[in-house]
C-alpha cells in the first residue's frame, strides 16, 4: 500500500512543479498592469493636439469597464450607474422631442470629432453604424439592437421618450459599461441633436415608426 501512495504524492509534486514552470515560461502571458499599459499609451500618443489630451486619459468609468471587460462586479456596476446618472441633464422646459428630420441626419452622419475632420465639422451620432432604425434603410449595423418601430412599440409614451433621451445622453446611466457612447455626457452631441434623435425614435410620422 505504501508504494501507490508514494507514487501518488510524487505525481502531485511533479504536477505542481510543471504547473509552476508553465506559469513562468508558458505561452499564457501575465496580465499587464495598469501602470504598464498607461506607460505604453503615453509613449504612443506623445504629443496630442491641444484640447485632445483628455481623450488619451481614461475616466474612472472607462478604466473600470476596460479592467472588467464590460462585465463589472456588483459594487463597481452600482458605482458606475450612480456616477453616470449624476451627469444627466434634461432640457430645461422638459420637452425631449425635437425634429425627427434633423434627427435622421444625426443618425445617418458618421463624421465629426475625428482627427481627419475639421474643428467645425458637424458631429453625427452615427446611429445606423450599429442599429437598425427606419425599416426602409437597409444599410444598418448589428452591434446594437434593432430600434425599428421604437416609439410605436412603446405607444409613444412620454415617459418612454424621456428614458430614450436619457439613454442617448448617457447610455451607462441605464446600463453600466454599455458599448454605446455617452453622447451627452461627453458633449459629443448637443442637447438639440439628442432631442432630434429622440424625435426620430418617437415621432409617429418618423420613418422609424412607419415600415
Amino acid at each position: 500500500m505504501m508504494m501507490p501512495k508514494f507514487v501518488f504524492l510524487c505525481a502531485i509534486a511533479f504536477g505542481t512543479l510543471v504547473a509552476h514552470i508553465g506559469n513562468v515560461w508558458g505561452q499564457q502571458p501575465a496580465k499587464a498592469s495598469l501602470e504598464q499599459v498607461e506607460a505604453y499609451v503615453r509613449n504612443t500618443w506623445k504629443s496630442p493636439p491641444a484640447g485632445w489630451e483628455s481623450r488619451i486619459k481614461q475616466d474612472e468609468t472607462q478604466r473600470v469597464c476596460s479592467q472588467f471587460r464590460n462585465d463589472p462586479p456588483r459594487a463597481e456596476y452600482a458605482a458606475i450607474k450612480a456616477r453616470e446618472i449624476a451627469t444627466l441633464v434634461f432640457p430645461a422646459d422638459g420637452n425631449v422631442l425635437g425634429s425627427w428630420k434633423a434627427g435622421e441626419a444625426v443618425a445617418q452622419t458618421g463624421t465629426g470629432g475625428q482627427f481627419s475632420d475639421k474643428d467645425d465639422t458637424v458631429r453625427g451620432g452615427n446611429c445606423y453604424a450599429c442599429h437598425q432604425m427606419a425599416p426602409k434603410e437597409l444599410s444598418y449595423g448589428t452591434l446594437g439592437p434593432s430600434l425599428a418601430e421604437y416609439g410605436k412599440i412603446r405607444k409613444f409614451e412620454s415617459a418612454e421618450a424621456k428614458a430614450a433621451y436619457a439613454k442617448i445622453f448617457n447610455a451607462q446611466s441605464v446600463l453600466p459599461c454599455s458599448s454605446m457612447p455617452r453622447f451627452g455626457a461627453h458633449k459629443f452631441l448637443t442637447e438639440q441633436q439628442i432631442k432630434d434623435v429622440t424625435a426620430y425614435l418617437f415621432d409617429p410620422a418618423s420613418p422609424v415608426n412607419n415600415p
Binding site: V37, V41, R55, R182
Partner: peptide, 20 residues
C-alpha cells in the same frame, strides 16, 4: 510576453469621446 500582454490590454482599453 510583456508586449503581448500590453497588446491585449490595449485591445480592451476604452477611451476618448465615444468610449470605444
Amino acid at each position: 510576453r510583456e508586449m503581448l500582454a500590453v497588446g491585449e490590454a490595449l485591445f480592451y482599453r476604452r477611451s476618448a469621446v465615444m468610449d470605444f
